[in-house]
Design a protein around this nucleic acid. Structure first.
Lengths: 211, 211
DNA sequence: GGCAAATGTGAACAGTGTTAACATGTAGCA
DNA sequence: TGCTACATGTTAACACTGTTCACATTTGCC
């Protein structure tokens, strides 16, 4: 980063989030450091403290970006009349997000690196789950989802767990070994859709309403 | 730790693993440090290098212990003739392991802290999954499990993903919010079994073989 | 214009894992 | 037994981390 002309940065807060976001994208948490982010933003190591308090504060903001990006992946899936297709496509999109953004994915679920009490984090962090959870509940025939109904909540939790676990296993390379001859590069397009078909089989056609 | 009488420790390798294991149990990865483990074993900070190379080497050994302990939880579940009961009990045991050993659980899945190329790690780390995976495949009617069959592998992967995701969500406190009025202390005994009943419903009784 | 608050710097601190040179004890071999 | 490797310990140093403190500079408001 070239040295600044002015003593004040102008928009250091945003610049630091951007720098941290890049560092996470490039090398994950491993290569990230607060000092490296400060340096990339062209600022001294002590500067971030004024804006974020501690490194957790900065990483929490990066995590918010990550959750929003995961949301984008899910939003790229458009609802169809087929609930089975919907839930499979959402799961696949989430796994794709994990594989294509490994550093961010790992950050999102590192409770020691983010401030879970941050109200925006609380909100952002369970949006993707809600989106998929609703699709799963719908798949299981719960037309009108009521979070006060135990069955609906259980269905959502189960669906989110499966999605999360699947993304983790695929990202960390623990899914591949189950499939002889599967290639890491083509797993998402070849094996995984078939796995999802098995987890969420096609539903019987809805009974026609009696006239 | 009291200073040693002898210059050599005697069994430093085991003592270090033990010290690290305790530190992980007491405060998780957050409070763990190589120097703290060395101090607890009554030895200088440089000593561990001779036995484990780097901190990863030591933590890998702790992770092996953790996987073995998770295996104990699963082994405490005895097979019954009811596949639904088996798979529910195994899932529940795994979640119980996570909640009762949070530091170890988090370590096990931190790819940056363990040496995944360690052959013993490779072996230990997918044992629990195999145990549950088999139960899930059996639950889905795959009597003779053949890992070369795509359907069996997919069933296992799905089951492991659900179990892993469930343990993560419960441990990190992200499951509770779905259930109004649920208490953290009683979640494992009250809500979770019912959730598992919904994920793995009772099977229809097997058709009697035609004589 | 003046003064408080916001936002930057530089130096220091305690902590980390790792390394190098060296000390000490152990074990095997002539 | 004596000698020699080798294994296993120590000490001091290194580069790195996040954070804090006193201080510099700029901004914005009365």
């Amino acid at each position: 980063m070239s040295p600044r002309a002015t003593y004040h940065h102008g928009d250091l807060r945003a610049a630091l989030i951007d720098a941290a976001d890049q560092l996470i994208a490039e090398g994950g948490i491993e290569t990230f450091s607060l000092r490296a982010a400060a340096q990339r933003a062209g600022v001294s190591p002590a500067a971030p403290a004024h804006h974020f308090g501690s490194v957790k504060g900065l990483l929490t903001q990066v995590a918010l970006l990550a959750y929003a990006r995961a949301g984008d992946y899910l939003d790229s899936v458009h609802d169809t009349p087929d609930p089975a297709h919907n839930v499979r496509a959402l799961s696949l999109a989430f796994v794709r997000f994990a594989v294509e953004n490994p550093g961010h994915f790992r950050l999102m679920f590192r409770g020691d690196l983010v401030d879970r009490d941050d109200p925006r984090y609380r909100e952002f962090s369970h949006r993707p789950g809600l989106r998929l959870g609703r699709a799963v509940a719908t798949y299981h025939g719960h037309r009108h989802i009521d979070m006060n109904r135990f069955e609906d909540a259980a269905e959502m939790l189960g669906g989110i767990a499966a999605m999360h676990g699947l993304a983790y296993l695929v990202l960390e390379g623990k899914a591949l070994r189950f499939f002889k001859g599967a290639q890491a590069e083509s797993f998402l397009t070849d094996e995984l859709p078939r796995v999802l078909e098995q987890i969420y089989p096609a539903l019987p056609p809805p009974a026609l309403p009696v006239l």
